[in-house]
C-alpha cells in the first residue's frame, strides 16, 4: 500500500480545517500559557503546532506548511526533553528552604484542590482577558484587513489570539521555559500573518529556523536555571 501524501492527509482531515482548527488552536495556546504542569504545557504546544499546520495550508504552499509543522514537532521534542530534565517544572527534590528561596522558586498557595502561584494567577487572568478579546474580534473582523484577506475570516482571530497569548506568556514570567513558550506562540502567530506578505522558501525556512533557535536557547537556559552549580555548591 502506498504511503499517504501530504494532500491525502489533508483530505482525510478536511473536517478539522478552518474554524474548528482555530477554536482548538486557541484553546491549546491558552492551556500552554496558563498550565503550571509542564507535561500539560508541552502537550498543548504539540497540539498547537499540529493545528497551526492546518492554518498554514491556507497561507502557504502545503509542502511549506508541512515543513512548518515538522519543525514544530522538533521544537516540541526539544521542549519535552528539557521539561523532563527540569523535573516538569517542580522544584528540585531535597532542596532546603533557604536554597529554594535563593533560587527564587515561588511559594505556592492552596486554591481549592489546586495549589497556585502568584504569577500563575496573573497569567490566568491576562490569558482569560485575551481570550475574551479574541472572541469579540470574531464578531467584528477587519483588524488586519490591509493584509489578511476577508475570505478566510477565521484566520484573523487565530493570528490575533496567538500573538496576544504569546505576549501574555512572555510578559508574565521571567523564567526561560514558560516565557519561551510564550515567545514560540508569538512567533507562530507572526509566521501565520507574515505568510500573507512573503511566501518565499527563504523566508519560510528563516522563520522555521528562528523557532528552532528559540527552542534551543530556552532548553539551554532552563537547564542552567535548574540546580545551578554556582548557587548550590
Amino acid at each position: 500500500m502506498d504511503a499517504p501524501t501530504i494532500f491525502d492527509l489533508l483530505d482525510r482531515l478536511a473536517f478539522l480545517r478552518g474554524a474548528p482548527s482555530v477554536v482548538l488552536l486557541l484553546a491549546a495556546a491558552f492551556v500552554a500559557v496558563v498550565a503550571w504542569d509542564l507535561r500539560l504545557v508541552i502537550a498543548a504546544v504539540f497540539v498547537h503546532y499540529l493545528l497551526a499546520g492546518f492554518l498554514f495550508v491556507d497561507v502557504l504552499d502545503p509542502r511549506l506548511a508541512f515543513v512548518y509543522t515538522l519543525a514544530g514537532l522538533f521544537v516540541t521534542a526539544i521542549l519535552l526533553v528539557t521539561a523532563w530534565q527540569v523535573n516538569w517544572g517542580r522544584r528540585p527534590s531535597g532542596l532546603a528552604a533557604d536554597e529554594a528561596s535563593r533560587l527564587g522558586l515561588a511559594d505556592t498557595r492552596p486554591l481549592g484542590p489546586f495549589s497556585v502561584t502568584q504569577p500563575g494567577l496573573l497569567r490566568l487572568g491576562f490569558a482569560t482577558a485575551v481570550f475574551g478579546a479574541v472572541l469579540w474580534l470574531t464578531r467584528a473582523p477587519g483588524l488586519f484587513a490591509s493584509t489578511v484577506p476577508i475570505e478566510p475570516a477565521y484566520l484573523e482571530p487565530a493570528i490575533a489570539g496567538l500573538l496576544a497569548l504569546g505576549l501574555v506568556g512572555l510578559v508574565t514570567s521571567a523564567e526561560p521555559l514558560p516565557s519561551g513558550v510564550g515567545l514560540l506562540l508569538f512567533l507562530s502567530g507572526f509566521g501565520l500573518f507574515y505568510g500573507f506578505l512573503d511566501q518565499s522558501l527563504a523566508m519560510t525556512v528563516a522563520l522555521v529556523a528562528a523557532q528552532l533557535i528559540v527552542a534551543l536557547v530556552v532548553a539551554y537556559l532552563a537547564q542552567a536555571r535548574y540546580l545551578p552549580v554556582d548557587v548550590l555548591d
Binding site: L103, L170, A174, E175, P176, S179, G180, L183, F186, L187, A210, V214, V217, Y220, L221, A224, R225, P228, V229, D230, V231
Partner: peptide, 25 residues
Amino acid sequence: VVPALHGGKFDAVVPAWRYFLLIGL
C-alpha cells in the same frame, strides 16, 4: 552569545534570557 552572557552564573540566566527574548521579538 547566550552561553557567554550566562557564563555559568545562576543570576545571569534571567537577564541573558531577556536579552535574547527582546532580540527575538
